[in-house]
Design a protein around this nucleic acid. Structure first.
Lengths: 337, 337
DNA sequence: AGCCGGTTGTATAACGTTGTAAAAGCCTGC
DNA sequence: GCAGGCTTTTACAACGTTATACAACCGGCT
């Protein structure tokens, strides 16, 4: 482990001079610069970032906590965040919370405080009161559908509008009995289930009944959950002619069950997902889906955090609304497209 | 920012005593412990990990560099590594290299040296010479199919045997014209393309010709690459009756093309993938695939790295061979299973 | 020659923590 | 009442870096 001191000794100069060379300080004569550089090269010196961090009070690391890396949406998003952070010379420390409240709390309470300068969190179970009780002072940017009464930056597409867009598309293509897959059990008391709200609003606007029997809750948001939810829906009563899923993995699970039951998509049941993960494009029946602008989400989140870190952001919490669009594929309109 | 000094002042004791309390040092009287703890609570003290890291010379962070988070295999693997690391109280810093050599080099040259204690790298383009030229001294554990003549720990399933298992299954179910999708252009000069080698060996063992026209190279390993490769294969000449894909995403792409061309799976063409990503189970025709034991891979990699960090590992590079098995689904045997 | 403004290099003190070694306190047994 | 052996607490020096303030130097000008 070679330090500035060793280099300084070798070059016969002071520690600070070496530091100046390393940091590209202006007022160093070319001769001196070269002399020091030679010593650096000879000894193979590498700056100790930990020491630098201690001294500077910042680490250049931001944490990203998502529910589940196994969900392609979050994996793809994480990739985008890593790239966006790299453009600001930040490194990303990745965590996954499993969507469990205790884990989310732990992360947002900064159990890795001082290792990371700030946090981007995509919460599932976290409550407003948890955020208000937060003692950690490092900047926090929230991602995703949940809405909070807490003074933190929040990046999320307009989920209600996006959901309405999807449901509208189903209505426009002649569907009348449109189910929602992937509600939370507790969504009744939560004001925040925006996609479900969008579904309700658009059905109302179309003059269609938002029958409770058409809403299926799931434990989590994976393919298996989707498959089970679809089965439950079919077993429950009269078949729907369309399904709007909370996300693409649930939709993929639904496709699986529909295939198993011999129902044709979209002829018997149309399916719309949400997230536009790469997998959806390649599904046997390519999936119509709402495509949030992942790059924009990642970029906005990182920009927001970087602004906070630089202190150039105001005190007001920011709300950013990245774009979204509907990607129409076979699962709603068939190969006729 | 409240430090040990502040707490010490408040409690009227020395800094070291506070440190002792924080670290659960044995010889502290209950009275003293409580007094200090009160001061800690009152001031809301949180230890500064950066300072601790500097002092201890270790950060408790290990880096994991995978080619592409968008590939579910790596996303799932990353999740497993994060969990395995957490069990050793390590935090994971995640990077993706895009499978580009320059990025892989950068990572393994330790451009984040001193931030991370060690590195787990899943390389694609990296060459043995790059590894031999490595100057960074932090422990490095390699993952994946590539083999190197360099003294580093390597965790990988027996890819040749696994590939042979897959091909054998195809042979056993009556296939005679078995293609390989997802070779590298340069695989000729690379000794390391083990799955392709397994394909060759098993065909030879079965007395079937390993026709070069049956080997399709791809640029990358995504679904799109698989779709294109399958199209190229079909356009090239007599149709194969089976396809063994380098990984599941390529296989999924192949399924897409087969469906588009009106070919039935497995009646016309059987398909086998590799990785057993969750998606494969839910594909329209559920995919037969080789399932590497991801948890074992993650666990072994982390254990290995932790051993190196603790200095309890010998000097010999280790080779660990986590298990694998063949998961048979519809894409080779149909719904008859 | 002496002075002055600007440049270039240096000594020292932090940043917040822990390890070491020594000091202080407390028993016990004579 | 005090030596001797514990236990508990403390002072101080690191870890490797950067910021601050200051010393040294170098021309060019009076």
């Amino acid at each position: 482990m070679v330090s500035l001191k060793d280099v300084a000794q070798r070059a016969g100069v002071s520690i600070k001079t070496v530091s100046n060379v390393v940091n590209g300080y202006q007022h160093v004569t070319p001769a001196m610069r070269e002399r020091v550089q030679r010593a650096i090269d000879e000894l193979g010196y590498r700056p100790n970032l930990t020491a630098r961090h201690l001294r500077k009070g910042r680490t250049g690391i931001i944490a990203l906590a998502v529910p589940e890396l196994g969900n392609p949406y979050f994996a793809e998003l994480a990739g985008a965040v890593i790239d966006a952070a790299a453009r600001h010379d930040y490194t990303v420390l990745l965590d996954h919370t499993g969507g469990r409240r205790d884990q989310e709390l732990l992360v947002c309470q900064g159990f890795r405080a001082h290792v990371m300068d700030g946090l981007i969190l995509s919460p599932i179970e976290l409550e407003s009161e948890d955020l208000l009780a937060r003692t950690d002072t490092s900047p926090l940017v929230l991602l995703g559908e949940r809405e909070y009464d807490a003074p933190y930056d929040h990046i999320a597409i307009d989920n209600v509008a996006a959901a309405r867009l999807a449901v509208r598309h189903l209505v426009d293509t002649g569907r009348r009995r449109i189910a929602f897959l992937g509600a939370r059990e507790e969504s009744a008391r939560r004001p925040a289930h925006l996609r479900l709200r969008g579904w309700r609003e658009e059905l109302a606007a179309a003059g269609l009944p938002a029958d409770d029997a058409l809403v299926i809750a799931t434990e989590a948001y994976g393919r298996e959950d989707g498959a089970r939810a679809m089965a439950a829906l079919l077993d429950r009563g009269p078949h729907p002619d369309a399904v709007f899923a909370y996300n693409d993995t649930i939709a993929v699970g639904a496709l699986r069950t529909l295939a198993d039951r011999g129902l044709r998509v979209p002829e018997d049941v149309a399916v719309v997902g949400f997230d536009n993960i790469d997998e959806s494009r390649f599904a046997h029946t390519p999936l119509t889906t709402v495509a949030p602008d992942k790059e924009a989400i990642a970029r906005l989140a990182v920009d927001c955090l970087v602004d906070r870190l630089a202190g150039t952001a105001g005190t007001e919490p920011r709300r950013a609304r990245p774009g979204h669009r509907l990607v129409v594929r076979d699962s709603t309109v068939g190969r006729s497209r």
